[in-house]
Write a protein that binds this DNA or RNA. Structure first.
Lengths: 339, 339
DNA sequence: TTGTAAGCGTTATCAA
DNA sequence: TTGATAACGCTTACAA
């Protein structure tokens, strides 16, 4: 009695009832008398009864837990998505297990296995930049664990998806640079196999082409990761050539700051000599000098929608086989780092 | 058979064994024959058997889950701590459930209840800035859930603690400002009831006093939250008075950037007219212009140690009643925002 | 309106 | 060396 938590049985004994009656009373079963219901609920309250989720889970073959796999949490981008997810899932019966893959395919696979072993009811995932194959996600689906992919697409994977029109965001940014008079627009692209990298790159290329601007290979560099340091070397390559670009469209805000750093170091004035545009609209980007022009994405909404789609699927017992694909529109935000 | 996951029983049936034998074989019980062990393990491998953690949890009254409560995850500070925790806990049998209180006492209480209901085996927590009472943590302890507090102290709460010598960090920073010739050193403090706020403030006050500098009330302002925007108003109050400070020691890097922002706007040169020092050493602080002087904290180590202490306690069945209190030393990092 | 009993998947105890 | 059984806490037919 002193040991361990209060159980249904404890309440049953104290009230001279059977555990099943207590269970039904707490679950507002119609066949239970009002007086017993009240008595049970009162005692449960007093004893601070908390149903054991493991017993429930075992019985219902559900963990009531949703796994969330993100590449990292330091950026506002992913942490805002997580906030969106939490705000939707929080009020429900589900718990969230946040896992960080550190942009590593291997860690992602490990996490997926772990979550699968845990019997999570569903998974929200934005794949690592190193992720090229999606077997691990398909294994989840084989185990009837629904997967919702967000932000970074997994081409070929049949699942619900909540994405951003990266192509449009990039196109907007580059077309704006063109219209502002830039003639030599460079691109600092992301890790090569990411869908976001590809789509933004395509937006960049198409914007140039549609505006009859030449595509110059030496104006395209790719970073290996998304942190400031990852951008320094590629930015140097871009800015240390004889025919210096007069604009850089960067894969994200961090990399844009790498470009700003190198540009300043090389004595270039921003935006007079070179315009710089990022992607993501990280909060602190506003406070750099000059403040960074960038492409905003509806991150919070993405998180919420991803969670809602998963919850709906769980509610419907994962029967619907028609997967949803939702695509959000990003928006260019012009600040002081561009003309 | 087709439905649901592979269980011990499935394996047992296929091999004409009893479930208990299979269980023992998988757990390398000495009394099981080598040949059966091999057969069982092989089949388990083939069938991709994954033990059901809920069954185990029910039996052992353990969830094998550790709850982590942090006020936010956007700062490098907390996300690095989380990384430290993950790196220690990841290789063990335990899972981590990361929860974000959004600096709100109410949300923190809700999270604690949720984790308690979940039967987490232990909790690592850094309290919200709104948290003044610690009953919710004491309730956990009553339920024999060990609590390790990190970074932000809970005065009066008996538990393991992993803290930083904020006093020393602040003292170092302010004394350095004094030695560099600043005469009018202001402080942008944090939310009032946080231990970190108090200790850094005391370090600031003592450094002034020990160096025979006057303490001027009008040079002390407090922010309500830790984001850039929270710092703008207090920074204005500090910098829009007639006798403008020639140095600001800010509670963290975000707030320091608020001060930088207002200082620049007011036409002050940094560091010629005013020195600014932050706290936390956020990675992007290096890339502001001028790069920010700040106080570094061993965040990753803090996360690792907190996790290790909790794991140790779990291993020892939470018997030891002598709580550990570990205090890390922070270090001043001088960059370009100060003389 | 309430109680009984079975079962979810696993391990530990006892017996064989 | 292995098997049968009970137990963990809960829900749900089925019975009363």
């Amino acid at each position: 009695m002193r040991k361990g938590r209060v159980t249904l049985k404890d309440i049953a004994v104290k009230l001279n009832l059977s555990p099943s009656t207590v269970s039904r009373a707490l679950n507002d079963h119609p066949a239970i008398g009002d007086s017993t219901k009240k008595a049970v609920k009162r005692l449960a309250e007093v004893l601070d009864y908390q149903p054991n989720p493991m017993a429930l889970g075992l019985l219902q073959k559900k963990s009531h837990t949703i796994g969330v796999i993100v590449p990292e949490i330091t950026s506002h981008f992913f942490s805002a998505i997580i906030t969106g997810i939490q705000d939707v899932v929080g009020p429900t019966q589900y718990n969230i297990m946040i896992c960080i893959s550190n942009e590593s395919f291997e860690e992602e696979v490990t996490l997926v296995k772990k979550l699968s072993r845990m019997r999570v009811d569903g998974i929200l995932v934005s794949p690592a930049s190193g992720t090229k194959s999606f077997e691990h996600f398909q294994n989840l689906q084989k185990n009837e664990i629904p997967v919702v992919v967000f932000d970074r697409d997994c081409p070929g994977l049949d699942s619900d998806k909540v994405l951003v029109d990266d192509y449009s965001g990039a196109y907007q940014a580059v077309e704006y640079l063109i219209h502002s008079g830039c003639k030599k627009i460079a691109h600092l692209g992301g890790p090569l196999n990411l869908s976001t990298t590809k789509h933004r790159m395509q937006g960049y290329l198409d914007a140039l082409e549609k505006n009859n601007m030449p595509i110059r290979k030496e104006y395209i560099q790719h970073v290996q990761g998304f942190s400031h340091n990852d951008g320094l070397k590629p930015a140097k390559k871009l800015l240390n050539q004889t025919d210096v670009p007069d604009a850089i469209f960067a894969i994200n805000d961090n990399i844009a700051t790498s470009a700003m750093h190198i540009a300043k170091k090389n004595g270039l004035r921003i935006p007079e000599d070179i315009s710089i545009v990022g992607f993501d609209d990280e909060p602190h980007s506003t406070y750099f000098s000059p403040s960074l022009s960038t492409v905003w994405q509806p991150v919070y909404s993405m998180g919420m929608l991803s969670a809602r789609i998963l919850l709906k699927r769980l509610k419907d017992n994962n029967v619907a086989k028609n997967f949803r694909e939702e695509i959000f529109k990003p928006e260019l935000v012009v600040r002081a780092s561009s003309k």
